[in-house]
């Protein structure tokens, strides 16, 4: 479903991703770990289509389509979703209102008509329940005055509403309390099926106890330097990144 080949990305002249390869198939959950500043959020942003990043080489295919040519909204319509590491506040725009627009834009792209108000409300209720988000939050301006954890939960709520094929969760676990972490993870698990996939960026093994990944990758110095199964996360948890850094410090630019 997602094929990233030799991806090279720079921002403001600084090279951040240096030939990254990653393949994600339908039905899989991939976890990406790695030290601060390794380029994890950069990867997430580039998948979502952020303009500030310059792709200097490589390709990203999504269902065989080169999505680097597409605008962020076109990617969303194709089924890509990004849960932001730092969700921003948008005063004056209510989450429900813009989601209604978003749901219909995506439906139109698929050649479907607008969703009936009743159907939309029913879906709203169902997804709110799924991630246990307070209706008072979704009725308010996007993330305005939300706590850190509330913002993260709102990201997952939006994901549930838009039902993407590929969801990139950028440190959704950081900022969530223990109960919220479990609720959000259970929500993700309920949304998992054999046609979608998740790319879960995290620093902590804890999340991966709930959302069990098929693969764990270590992103370091702009490349995926190590891949394994969930045991790799445990190893990182106990050993840290020093051994990785030592092993891969001599990466040619």
């Amino acid at each position: 479903m997602l094929e990233i080949k030799n991806l090279q990305v720079s921002v403001e002249g600084k090279e951040i991703l240096k030939g990254l390869n990653l393949t994600v198939n339908k039905g899989e959950v991939h976890a990406i770990m790695g030290p601060n500043g390794a380029g994890k959020s950069t990867l997430a942003s580039v998948i979502a289509g952020k303009q500030d990043y310059e792709v200097t080489g490589g390709s990203i295919l999504f269902n065989g389509k080169d999505i680097l040519e597409l605008s962020p909204d076109e990617r969303a319509k194709e089924g890509v979703f990004l849960a932001f590491q730092y969700p921003i506040e948008i005063p004056g725009v209510s989450t429900i209102n813009f989601l209604k627009t978003a749901v219909n834009e995506i439906r139109q792209h698929k050649g479907m008509g607008n969703m009936e108000a009743k159907e939309f409300l029913a879906m709203l209720k169902e997804k709110q329940k799924l991630v246990q988000i307070d209706t008072n939050l979704t009725g308010r301006s996007v993330n305005e005055g939300f706590s850190g954890g509330e913002k993260k939960r709102n990201e997952i709520f939006q994901m549930a509403m838009l039902n993407p094929q590929l969801a990139v969760l950028d440190e959704t676990d950081s900022g969530l309390d223990i109960d919220a972490l479990r609720i959000v993870a259970e929500g993700v698990n309920k949304l998992r099926n054999k046609n979608n996939a998740f790319l879960v960026i995290t620093h902590y093994q804890r999340l991966l106890e709930y959302i069990i990944p098929d693969f764990v990758h270590v992103l370091y110095n702009g490349q995926i330097v190590k891949s394994g199964t969930k045991e790799l996360a445990l190893e990182l948890e106990s050993k840290g990144y020093d051994w990785i850094k030592k092993e891969f410090s001599e990466i040619p630019a």
Binding site: K50, S71, A76, F84, P87, I88, I90, V103, E105
Partner: peptide, 25 residues
Amino acid sequence: DEEALFYLQTRGLNENVARKVLLGA
């Protein structure tokens, strides 16, 4: 706000619609 514009775009609103939503707000 370019960040807000990008945020709304990642949810499927095209640039014009997203801009209209932000200006409306």
